[in-house]
């Protein structure tokens, strides 16, 4: 399947990345080549196979749900690029 500039534009929007026209052209060309390379997997029969995620087949280990020490409010927001007191500051999300 041929990757089009339209597809790259759409996927860039899904990824919340604003690409320049030049980058769209470049990525379209490169992604097309990379996906063509990936298409070789189509020749492998896999319908009978379970997918692997954890390499040694372990199920995730969950902790007991109990309260432990956590970051202070100050530590939680100290890296925010913009903040107001103990809060993260963001542009309006809901239109009024």
């Amino acid at each position: 399947m041929k990757i089009t500039e339209e597809t790259v534009r759409y996927v860039a929007h899904l990824s919340r990345i604003e690409l320049s026209e030049e980058e769209i052209r470049e990525f379209t060309y490169q992604l097309d080549a990379i996906l063509k390379y990936m298409d070789q997997l189509k020749e492998v029969k896999t319908s009978h196979l379970e997918p692997t995620s954890h390499a040694i087949g372990m199920k995730p280990l969950l902790r007991e749900d109990k309260v432990e020490g956590s970051f202070s409010q100050e530590e939680s927001v100290m890296n925010a690029p913009e903040r107001k007191g103990p809060f993260f500051k963001v542009p309006p999300v809901i239109e009024v």
Binding site: A12, L14, F27, L31, L41, T46, L49, P51, T52
Partner: peptide
């Protein structure tokens, strides 16, 4: 962008699931 594409609706089975199965092999 590539990762979003292979996970996007309609392509997940052809790419991510397929790759996870080849990983088993």
């Amino acid at each position: 962008i590539l990762g979003t594409y292979v996970l996007s609706s309609g392509y997940y089975d052809a790419y991510y699931k397929k790759a996870s199965q080849v990983r088993t092999l």
